[in-house]
Design a protein around this nucleic acid. Sequence first.
RNA 1: GCGCGCUUAGCUCAGUGGUAGAGCACAUCCUUCACACGGAUGGGGUCGCAGGUUCGAACCCUGCAGCGCGCACCA
Length: 901
Amino acid sequence: MSDLPKAYEPQAVEAKWYAAWIEGKCFEADPSSEKPAYSIVIPPPNVTGILHLGHVLNNTIQDVLARRARQKGMEVLWLPGTDHAGIATQAKVERELRENEKLTRRDLGRDEFLKRVWAFKDKHGDIIINQLKRLGCSCDWSRERFTMDAEYTKWVSHVFVELFKEGLIYRGKRIVNWCPVSLTALSDEEVVMTPQRSKLYFMKYEFTDAPGEFLEISTTRPETLMGDVAVAVNPKDPRHAKNIGRMVYRPFPHTPIPVIADDHVDIEFGTGALKITPAHDKSDFEIGLRHGLEIIDVLTPDGHVNCPEVPELHGLDRFVARKKAAAMLEERGLLLKVEEYENNVGFSERAHVPIEPRISMQWFLKYPCVKEAADAVATGEIQFRPERWAKTYAHWMENLQDWCISRQLWWGHQIPVWYRKDKLDDLKNAESLDTSHLSHGDLFVGVEPPADADNWVRDEDVMDTWFSSWLWPFATMTNVGEKSATLKKFHPTTDLVTGPDIIFFWVARMIMAGFRFEGELPFKNVYFTSIIRDLQGRKMSKSLGNSPDPIDLMEKYGADGLRFGLMRIAPVGSDVRFDESSVEEGRNFANKLYNACRFRQMADEIEAPTAEVGDDEVIGMANCFHVDILAKLDQLAVDLERIYGEYRFGEIAQRLYDFLWGEFCDKFLEAVKGDLRESATPEARAVTLSVFDTVMSRFLQLLHPYMPHVTEELSLRMGYLEEGEFLMQEPLPDEPVLAGLAAEEIAAEQSKAAAIYETAGRVRNLKAEYHVGSRRDVKLVVKGAVEWLSEQQQVLALLSGAGEIVLDAAYDAPKGTPVSLTPVGEIYLPLEGLIDVEAEKIRLSREIARIEQEVVRCETKLGNESFVARAPAAVVEQEKARIVEWQGKLVQLREMLAGLG
RNA sequence: GCGCGCUUAGCUCAGUGGUAGAGCACAUCCUUCACACGGAUGGGGUCGCAGGUUCGAACCCUGCAGCGCGCACCA
């Protein structure tokens, strides 16, 4: 091993092990297993997407959970797959078509276009899957699913049909969020409210019964005023009481419209008069319904004015028309003023343009099993982490709006509804459709097409992508009408790991679907990950170019480095600011681990005898450093078990890091280095090697979920496992390493080790103070040494960098010899006349002053009767002990100062 | 407008009542036979502000401020 490179090179190792795990079928779940089940379904990434850091965090957490569960003896299913991502995928293909062939999807026709999308999916669909594999994800790839698989599509249709029969799905003309670019309706969740700097136009409409008298109105959208059918005022508004029931002239087309009264109008806002455009505003639409007003649509689907009566505006883009309309008002002397104004405008989540509220015929769903779904989270049957998201969920569940599930797209699950050809026009124009039409035979709703298909025409729309995603936990496990062995074993799933940004889109809807179609919750725990931002706190996005490519990071630092680095900084509650240096630290950690093992291998190559020491004998021969590290390992295992239960992934990473680096390498390895030299006794060598192996083999196991590749590699290299065995399949041992040793004995040994470590630190800092920190030949004299110090004298010399340590109870220190009070005695550092006496005097005086202050502080505290009476006894004792300690030190320091003259 | 978070060292963040912590960055030293992707030492914080509870508050309570995020029919 010593001929290997000094630094760990992860790339080849990681590829090798991933292939080996696949070859060994390590990820495949067995539904017939006797072991308890543990399951996760992956949040399916977009099939044509590419991996970003959010995916890395999310999937690393899932992999950690899955791998840990396997170690805990569970039968694990991590079910992977991809989502067809209707709008996103269709838009990509349309763009490619436009750029390469100057064609639109309509030029190709539906069938041909869909062929193109499938081809695109086949070409790009594996990219993100392969990226997940590169990351080391232990998904059961034999069960990979896609939301448009034939069987999955059946589920989607089946669910539609069932909910339609139940009367929860209906069709109707409503105001929907219309995207003028994608040319489809969107759900409320797909609209992002964005503050905009816009203009508020104040205009006046003339009363028909009083020429020269005007009603003042403000609006942000003058381009829609051709669709005005009324002006509304609040009935409680005294300013307008006299106006209710009168008529005013809409400027263009010049037509009288009524002034009506409606509670919705805010008296405080502007002039208290609101123009009503039912076709282009949701609340206007509702007011229109209440008052039986006409609906005049003056915009085309792609956001252009459609109003031949006003030729100046007809055909203009909506934003061009806005300026033009304002100019026209001004020409007519009807524009009073224009103010700068900030308001919230809904933007299309995908197309990034303002959505248009638009009347159109769409399919809607009234959510099923709302109460069960709300209760499941409220009662804690489904546990949210962090818990506060439960409140967000509850709020949404209490204010559910019907879900617009139809999309005017081609890529997706086509609505399983057929219309009779001869009734097509009637049906398409009908205001609404309900289940009664089913029996009339004009409408056919079914998973399979009607038998006499030639007489029917299928609804052209497809369903919202989330209408398939919400079935993911069970539709990936079983076919319609079956209860597969997989479903029986693994549903409900154990943990769901996802981002809080899709709590409404996905999480809430899955819970409802789970209750409705499987009669049970879909998962028991939901862990919401942090949102990853850049160092400026901005979201990662392609357009900002602030999103590092995880593949590049893995090339540079290894998948294990990326995983560990990201997990270590991922906080439980809030967002995380990403910096590449954290990944670098992950890489460094893997390297540290690798080198610790390399050190062990090199020790084997030294030609020095090793005694045969049986496992049982090791503990008996162990010194305090051995016992100490073994005890810390046991403690680590116990702590990790608890922290896993709390899903505190960052803390787990931190504990692993601190143990390996701080305890194992910095302390333990340094303390036992002497045991591995040729000069050491065979027994000491044997015991130390044995302890090393015990700790390292168990530590590799504990670290494995976070850094699967390097731990697997080292377990084999170090001989902890045979060729053909996998660390990922090794169950975690239940027994502590030190099970056979009494707690008091462990504590006694640990306190010795702690004393030596602390003493070494004090000596090093004493050396540094006198600028001999790098010298390893200094002589130390210990006065008043604890009786056991002679046993560990060599180790202390090694750790503190001393050439010689002399125990001398009667040592008479030369004047000004630096001294440190340590847990093992007074340690002097004779400087052989090299010190600057004056500087030393100043240093001592400062130290004395500082300690005196400490003593005063403690005494004041102890003089406080309330403190003594109310504080726990242990705390009071601690304070007292502290004073004794400080005073002892003061005596020493004053003597030293006096000694200097 | 309502709700939820956050505010601790230059940066990123731990720390849920008992003497303020880590990593990075910084400074000095060390190319000592696991590791410079390393080792040693050190400087650096009135824990956002103001009150309150308590013997004792970064931590609990109440206000306030700043930042961020949700939700909402302000034209």
